[in-house]
């Protein structure tokens, strides 16, 4: 069964059609990717999925429920987590505090509990702490949990974002260009991490990426878009040999002659 199903999705800003009639699905337990040349509308698709943009038309069914026009925080609560293309950490807070933000939607203590430090509140705080440390351990950052987030190396900051997303206990994890800015070694680790998240935690993964090598290595299904329209779909081999995809990335041969 498809965990995420998108039909006829359209988005336009002031008459500019960013996404047109887009259709795709992500199977539960799979690793899927969305690729396309620069400006193809990939991040816009993510923003529509996570509720940051209001699509002009179409349906988005996630885990059997429509999530279209829902607020971002509600979509996260339903089990869809994301990372950002440019780092969006809470810079002046510690690594652990950053990850704790993910647990916010899975906990409930209010002001009264906080002021009185009730038993339930203390128990919940301990649970938050424990779960977030586990998330940090999973991405290999437990040792730096008390450091200020912005003092970490770039690659480590990216992993803090991952741990933070994992702390929301998602069913589906959206990764916006996870390999951007990473070196070769870090990219290899990233591939391992993506697979571990799916295999050990059972979380479905949907990613946007520029690095074709990485996409081809991890994805089981790839959707290619250009100018907001889907131009191809399939596994790595099929995509690599698809003439439309090659055209989109490299241009038409006739173009050069003209």
């Amino acid at each position: 069964m498809a965990l995420l199903e998108v039909n006829n999705l359209a988005l336009s800003f002031a008459g500019l059609h960013v996404i047109k009639e887009l259709e795709f699905s992500v199977e539960e337990g799979s690793i899927a990717s969305l690729i396309g040349p620069n400006g193809a509308g990939k991040t816009s698709v993510f923003n529509c999925l996570t509720g940051f943009y209001r699509p002009t038309a179409g349906t988005i069914i996630f885990n059997g429920k429509s999530i279209i026009h829902k607020k971002p925080y509600k979509i996260t609560r339903q089990g869809m987590a994301r990372t950002f293309q440019n780092l969006r950490l809470f810079k002046s807070m510690t690594v652990l505090e950053n990850v704790m933000s993910g647990m916010h939607c899975r906990s409930s203590a209010g002001p009264i509990g906080a002021i009185l430090r009730t038993g339930a509140q203390q128990k919940e705080e301990a649970e938050i702490n424990e779960f977030c440390e586990r998330c940090l351990d999973f991405v290999g950052l437990l040792a730096v949990k008390d450091r200020i987030a912005s003092n970490l190396a770039y690659g480590d900051q990216r992993r803090v974002e991952w741990a933070r997303a994992l702390a929301t206990q998602p069913k589906l994890l959206l990764l916006d260009e996870p390999a951007a800015g990473l070196n070769h070694v870090e990219k290899q680790q990233l591939i391992g991490l993506i697979k571990r998240i799916r295999d050990q935690l059972g979380i479905t993964i949907f990613l946007i990426e520029h690095d074709m090598g990485l996409v081809m290595k991890v994805s089981e299904k790839i959707t290619v878009i250009d100018y907001g329209e889907k131009i191809a779909q399939g596994n790595a081999d099929e995509i690599q040999n698809n003439s439309k995809v090659i055209e989109a990335y490299l241009g038409k041969e006739e173009d050069e002659i003209v």
Partner: peptide, 14 residues
């Protein structure tokens, strides 16, 4: 969280 980055906070389910 909200003070530092509203959008990121919202994306974390807040």
């Amino acid at each position: 969280y909200v003070r530092e980055d509203e959008d990121a906070a919202e994306a974390m389910g807040i």
